[in-house]
Design a protein around this nucleic acid. Structure first.
Lengths: 189, 189
DNA sequence: AATAAAAATTAAGCTGGTTTAAGAAAATCA
DNA sequence: TGATTTTCTTAAACCAGCTTAATTTTTATT
């Protein structure tokens, strides 16, 4: 079931036969995780790329004071990892953890290389995905540098209302770059 | 000369014959620009992707108060555009402008599509470039959410010392998300 | 070399957002 | 179902970084 989420997503970018799609699916491990399970540990070699079939993941780090800070969320059909560390097979700068019960497809770095070698059309798929992700990251930096914390919250809630319901408020606060206390104050208005 | 910067860069990721490389180069327009020339205008359809062969570009927007804010720099061998708008052929959210006399290779969206169709190996090149760019953007967001403005400056200067010399201080300030006045104060120490 | 324009500095007053700390509400678990 | 832990709220004191405005330095133009 879960691999179908992936193969359908791939099919919306590139044309593959049913046969090819099931071959592609074989490159991935499928696993379900409980809430708050770690899929990737900071400092450990970043060897895995994740695709969310169901549920929600976060990419986060621990700051000087020991508080977790969320850098990126990933919901259904999103890819997640520390891409820089993954590409260079270096220690990860981030943790990846479930925010809720989730089903995730994982691919190791070497399998990822094999996959791209065996199905060069997958390059096109990832190129498109990464164009979107990088473009969105540039927009996010634009927002960070132009909106107040209050505007950040309302603009985010406006774009992703379901999402604001779905994740704990202190996680959302750390993603938006403000304190849970201040977020609480903003919501009061 | 300038197309060689591009073809050498491509060659460091993917193997192409000399012939193929010169065919690839034909998809691009090469032009030199003076300092402070606009290559892409906000609100106008984002139809072009830029590669810096020489010099330096910035991606920026104008905030509520009319001040330009730099979101991204691009130096030699970097690619730049509003990737989200480019991909969807929508109006750009950013301006692209030279920070110094620069030589730039430009490719339109339709030529980019043709290029990828004719040379599918270029998908691999762009996939790799975008993996790096997106990975770096995640790291940048990590820095924004963990360093003070002062630490931002020293950490940036530590990583890119030549660059700090190269761009005007008020542009650097807007890129780092602080005021020129405060940056000046930080440097005094 | 003189003039004008752009960029950088300095300093004082101010504010958006943090910190700290304690209590209330909600979720989880035996 | 009650006990425990986790999450959310409230409020006051505080500060990193901004605003404003005037001066100096640097760069560009003739």
């Amino acid at each position: 079931m879960s691999e179908q989420i992936l193969t359908e997503h791939i099919s919306s970018y590139v044309n593959f036969s049913e046969e090819e799609l099931s071959e592609i699916a074989c490159f991935f491990d499928i696993r379900s995780y409980r809430k708050k399970e770690k899929l990737l540990h900071a400092e450990k070699r970043c060897d895995t790329l994740f695709f969310v079939a169901k549920g929600c993941l976060q990419l986060y780090f621990i700051d000087d004071l020991g508080n977790p800070k969320t850098t990126q969320f990933a919901m259904e059909t999103w890819w997640l990892t520390d891409f820089l560390a993954f590409q260079n097979q270096r220690p990860s700068n981030f943790y990846v953890e479930t925010l809720e019960k989730s089903t995730v497809l994982s691919i190791t770095f070497s399998k990822y290389q094999e996959l791209l070698e065996k199905f060069p059309k997958m390059e096109k798929y990832y190129r498109a995905i990464l164009e979107t992700a990088y473009g969105a990251a540039l927009m996010r930096i634009k927002y960070i540098n132009s909106l107040s914390k209050e505007e950040m919250f309302f603009s985010f809630r406006n774009s992703f209302p379901e999402f604001v319901q779905r994740v704990p408020q202190y996680v959302l606060a750390s993603f938006l770059g403000l304190t849970p206390e201040y977020l609480s104050e903003i919501k009061k208005k």
